[in-house]
Deep mutational scan, measured.
Amino acid sequence: QVTPQEKEAIERLKALGFPEGLVIQAYFACEKNENLAANFLLQQN
């Protein structure tokens, strides 16, 4: 279960064009650090 703040962060990451499953994995792998997760996702392409 995610908090409203976490859900907002996940939605912002999804808005970058990444699928939800990948976003969630990256977000939690980066210890819920939205900026770190965004950098991680962008570097995967």
Rank of each mutant, 00 (worst) to 15 (best):
Q1K: 13
F18Q: 15
C30W: 05
F18R: 05
Q25L: 02
E8L: 09
F18C: 07
Q5V: 11
Q1M: 12
A9H: 04
E6C: 00
V2A: 07
P4D: 15
L13G: 02
E20P: 09
I10C: 01
V2T: 11
V2H: 14
L41T: 01
A38L: 12
A38C: 09
N35V: 10
L13K: 00
L36N: 05
Q1G: 07
Q43D: 04
E20N: 14
Q1H: 00
N39V: 05
N39H: 06
C30G: 03
E11N: 15
N45Q: 11
A26M: 05
L41W: 00
R12A: 05
A9L: 01
Q1I: 09
K7E: 12
I10P: 01
E11W: 03
P19Y: 09
A26G: 03
N39M: 05
N33Q: 09
I10L: 08
L42I: 12
N45H: 15
L22F: 06
I24N: 14
I24M: 13
L22T: 15
E11V: 06
L42A: 12
A38E: 15
L22V: 13
V2E: 13
Q43C: 08
G21R: 12
L16F: 05
P4A: 11
P19M: 05
F40T: 09
F40R: 13
A26R: 05
T3S: 12
A38P: 00
N45P: 11
P19N: 13
A29S: 09
A37E: 01
G21M: 14
P19I: 07
E6K: 03
F18D: 07
E11L: 08
A26W: 04
Q5G: 11
A38V: 10
L22K: 15
T3F: 06
A26Q: 08
E20V: 04
L13Q: 00
A9V: 09
R12W: 02
P4C: 11
E8D: 10
Q25E: 13
E20F: 03
K32L: 04
L13W: 01
Q44C: 04
L36Y: 11
V23T: 10
E8K: 12
E6S: 05
A37S: 08
I10H: 01
P19Q: 07
F28W: 07
E11P: 00
K32D: 01
L41K: 00
I10W: 02
Q1E: 09
Y27T: 00
K7M: 14
Q44A: 06
L22Q: 15
T3Q: 08
F28A: 14
A38M: 12
A9T: 15
Q1W: 03
R12S: 06
K32E: 04
F28V: 10
F40C: 10
E34M: 04
E6A: 11
Q1D: 01
N35C: 06
I24R: 13
A38R: 14
N39K: 13
A26V: 07
F18V: 06
K32I: 00
F18H: 09
N45T: 12
K7T: 12
A37T: 14
V23E: 02
L22G: 04
I10A: 00
Q1A: 05
A26N: 06
L36I: 04
A37Q: 00
A29D: 12
A9W: 01
A29I: 05
I24D: 12
E8G: 13
I24G: 08
G21E: 10
A9N: 09
E31R: 07
N39W: 03
E31D: 12
A29N: 10
L22H: 13
K32Q: 08
P19S: 08
K32A: 06
Q5D: 08
T3A: 06
C30V: 04
E31W: 03
A38K: 14
E34P: 03
N39G: 09
E8M: 15
E8Q: 12
N33T: 03
Q44M: 06
N45D: 11
K7A: 14
A38W: 10
Q44K: 15
E31L: 04
P4V: 11
R12I: 01
V2P: 06
A26F: 02
V23G: 03
P4L: 15
E11G: 07
L22D: 15
E8V: 10
L22N: 14
F40H: 11
V23L: 02
N45K: 14
I24T: 11
V2K: 08
E34W: 04
Q5F: 14
E20C: 07
N45L: 04
L13R: 01
E34Q: 04
R12Y: 03
N45G: 11
A26D: 04
E11D: 10
E6H: 11
T3E: 12
F28I: 10
P4T: 15
A38N: 08
A38F: 03
N33V: 04
I10R: 01
F18L: 06
P4S: 13
K7L: 09
C30M: 14
N33K: 06
K7Q: 15
A37V: 04
A37D: 01
Y27C: 00
E6W: 04
F18T: 03
E31Q: 09
R12M: 04
N35Q: 12
T3Y: 05
I24P: 09
A38T: 09
Q25A: 06
F40Q: 13
P19C: 07
Q25T: 10
L22S: 13
L41C: 05
Q25S: 11
T3M: 11
A15R: 02
I24Q: 14
A29V: 04
T3K: 08
A26T: 12
T3C: 13
E31P: 00
N35R: 14
E20K: 06
I10Y: 02
K7F: 07
Q25R: 08
N35G: 13
E31Y: 15
F40I: 08
Q43M: 12
Q25P: 11
G21Y: 05
Q43Y: 15
N33H: 09
P19L: 02
G21A: 15
V2G: 05
P4E: 14
P19E: 13
Q5W: 06
A38I: 15
A9M: 15
G21S: 11
K14L: 09
E6N: 04
K32P: 00
E8P: 11
P19H: 08
C30L: 05
V23F: 00
E31C: 06
Y27M: 08
L13Y: 00
E8S: 13
Q43A: 12
F40K: 15
N35K: 15
V23W: 00
R12F: 01
E20I: 06
Q43R: 13
E6L: 03
I10S: 00
L42C: 09
N35S: 09
Q1L: 05
Q25C: 03
E31K: 10
A26I: 04
I24E: 14
N45V: 07
Q43V: 07
A38G: 09
L42T: 09
A37C: 09
K14G: 04
Y27E: 01
E20R: 06
F18K: 07
F18P: 04
Q25F: 03
K7Y: 15
A26P: 03
N33A: 03
E6V: 07
Q1P: 01
Y27W: 12
N39E: 13
A37M: 01
N39T: 13
G17D: 07
K32W: 02
E31S: 07
L42M: 13
L13C: 00
N39I: 06
Q44L: 02
Q44D: 08
K7P: 03
L42H: 03
Q5S: 15
N35E: 14
E34R: 02
L36A: 14
F18N: 05
Q25I: 02
L42K: 15
I10G: 00
C30N: 14
P4N: 15
E11S: 10
E31H: 10
T3W: 02
E11Q: 10
K32C: 05
G21L: 08
I10E: 00
P4H: 13
F40G: 03
V23M: 05
V23D: 03
A37R: 00
F28S: 14
F40N: 14
I24S: 13
R12V: 02
L36T: 12
T3N: 10
L41G: 00
L22C: 09
I10T: 02
Q44I: 05
L36G: 10
E34G: 02
N35T: 12
N39S: 14
L42Q: 15
Q44W: 06
C30R: 05
Q44S: 08
A37P: 00
C30T: 05
A26E: 05
L36H: 09
C30S: 09
Q43F: 05
